[in-house]
Design a protein around this nucleic acid. Structure first.
Length: 462
RNA sequence: UCCCGGGUAGCUCAGCCGGCAGAGCGGGUGGCUGUUAACCACCAUGUCGGGGGUUCGAAUCCCUCCCCGGGAGCCA
């Protein structure tokens, strides 16, 4: 079928041309002599105004063009006579593919709450809000690849099914082909996973980092971009059970290189949305007020504040705020503490580095002070932690001692230790939750509204 | 998992110190020669989340379960 996307039609050079457009009716306004249809085809935030004069043969077809109907329209693109839009199509022919019964179709020409739209996930992409979210998400996805590719990073595909259960990033989903009605038991409590598909217990990945490390220690600079799973019973506006994560890993790099990459990365992501999604951001700015072109402009340029964990603690200790949780060197920063730093003290993104080793993962490189590790978190206003990264421990003995101290079984991790036995090198990387950056940039308050099919505890529709 | 708040028309919500189930939006019908989530007039809407209890009488009070939202923890 020959059609022009609305995104591509709206320019002076098309004036006077006969065009064919297809899309879904957002609203229809009829009067005796003329009718108007606002048509959207998903390619852009804008609707295209179709004008149907009463004398046009297609005027009688209009009864089938309710809100939600899928139609094709043919006509001449003109400069609009009315105010509110620059162009319009004077329709000569309309074909209705599928009408939408206005007494039943849930999306009508009125505002709907995000909570309600979550219940109709299969229809919500037809709204202004979700059309905008998914277009921004697309631009960000593309920019992720462009950012790394242009810097010579190699996209690697780490496994989704994994046997590593020691990543420490949270509870994991078990992957099994065992008959759940008749589980083979080694004793009354334990299941015999040697009879399972892989001959041992398998999980959905919580992170591709460990695998990305061996790829970095051979290919140089790599990144992953793929689905990640957490079986944590998290019920918040910032957590999903299935989400997309980006994990760059750089050989011959230290924590400072890591922080610079993270900062450049976020600058670039914000910049690309600024450049390519002006209409979408303008929409969010107008209707949700949690993001703006100005904010993004700042985010795409302004250097991030960097401070050590110890400096952050000092900053929090002199705060006049009353915190619910204690502030003390050695304790992890709570959400309220992070928010104080980003929203009140520095009013923008902050990178906190050199955390106490006891609150961080085994693979993070120990600093010469013996107390901290080269770990960094990028914190942003409203959303909180958006990136977590570190320089990795490349010294075999130090890593082994650390793993033993933390009770991590070494037998399944020999491949990981091999990387330190043979040609070990300093390396660093981070993980960025993709939905969190989409959330941050669009200003959407709930992470379930930036992914088509959100998965969360007790929630898996569609 | 914990702490709050909520569930009443298709949607958003009022009614809640017990006594006839309501509004706005959306929808339908009619009107209007260019509208912008059009406008004007009229019309229809209900398992008051489920179950149990108190009472002459429960949307309203009590118990319980389910679901949704906000916050916290875990993290990205």
């Amino acid at each position: 079928m020959k059609r022009i996307r609305i995104r591509n039609i709206l320019s002076d050079s098309n004036i006077g041309r006969t065009v064919t457009v297809c899309g879904w009716v957002r609203s229809k306004r009829e009067s005796k002599g003329v009718a108007f249809i606002a048509l959207n085809d998903g390619s852009t935030q804008d609707t295209l105004q179709l004008v149907v004069p009463a004398e046009a043969p297609s005027f009688s077809t209009l009864s089938g063009c309710n809100t939600g109907a899928a139609i094709r329209a043919e006509g001449v693109l003109k400069e609009s006579l009315g105010k509110g839009q620059r162009y319009e199509v004077e329709v000569s022919e309309i074909e209705v593919f599928g009408n939408a019964d206005s007494e039943k179709y849930p999306l009508q020409k009125k505002g709907h709450s995000l909570e309600f739209l979550r219940e109709i996930g299969h229809l919500r992409p037809r709204t202004n809000t979700f059309g905008a979210v998914f277009r921004v998400r697309n631009v960000l996805s593309h920019t992720v690849h462009h950012f790394f590719q242009s810097r010579g990073f190699i996209w690697v595909h780490t496994p989704i099914i994994t046997s590593s259960d020691c990543e420490g990033a949270g509870d994991m989903f078990t992957v099994t082909s065992l008959d759940l009605e008749k589980l083979p038991a080694v004793n009354s409590r334990n299941i015999d996973f040697s009879q399972d598909f892989f001959g041992r217990r398998a999980y959905l990945t919580v992170s591709g980092q460990l695998e990305a490390e061996f790829l970095a220690l051979s290919l140089g600079d790599v990144y992953t971009f793929g689905p990640t799973f957490r079986a944590e019973n998290s019920n918040t506006s910032r957590h999903l059970s299935e989400f997309w994560m980006i994990e760059p890993e750089m050989a011959f790099a230290d924590i400072n290189d890591d922080m610079s990459l993270a900062e450049d990365f976020i600058h670039t992501l914000c910049g690309s949305v600024l450049e390519k999604c002006e209409a979408e951001i303008a929409f969010f700015e107008k209707y949700y007020k949690n993001t703006s072109m100005n904010e993004l402009r700042v985010l795409s340029e302004k250097p991030f504040v960097r401070l050590t964990y110890s400096e952050a603690i000092k900053e929090l200790e002199k705060a006049k705020e009353v915190f619910e949780f204690p502030v003390k060197w050695g304790l992890d920063l709570q959400s309220e503490h992070e928010r104080y730093l980003t929203d009140k003290v520095f009013k923008g993104p902050v990178i906190v580095v050199d955390y106490p080793k006891d609150i961080k993962a085994f693979y993070m490189r120990q600093n010469p002070d013996g107390k901290t590790v080269a770990a960094m978190d990028v914190l942003v206003p409203k959303v909180g932690e958006i990136i977590g990264g570190s320089q990795r421990e490349e010294r075999l003995e130090v890593l082994e001692v650390r793993m033993k101290d933390m009770g991590i079984p070494l037998e399944n991790m020999q491949w990981y230790l091999d990387l330190r036995r043979y040609g070990s090198a300093p390396h660093a990387g981070f993980g960025l939750g993709f939905e969190r950056i989409v959330q941050y940039i669009t200003g959407m308050g709930n992470i379930r509204d930036v992914i088509p099919c959100p998965r969360a505890p007790q929630s898996i529709r569609y």
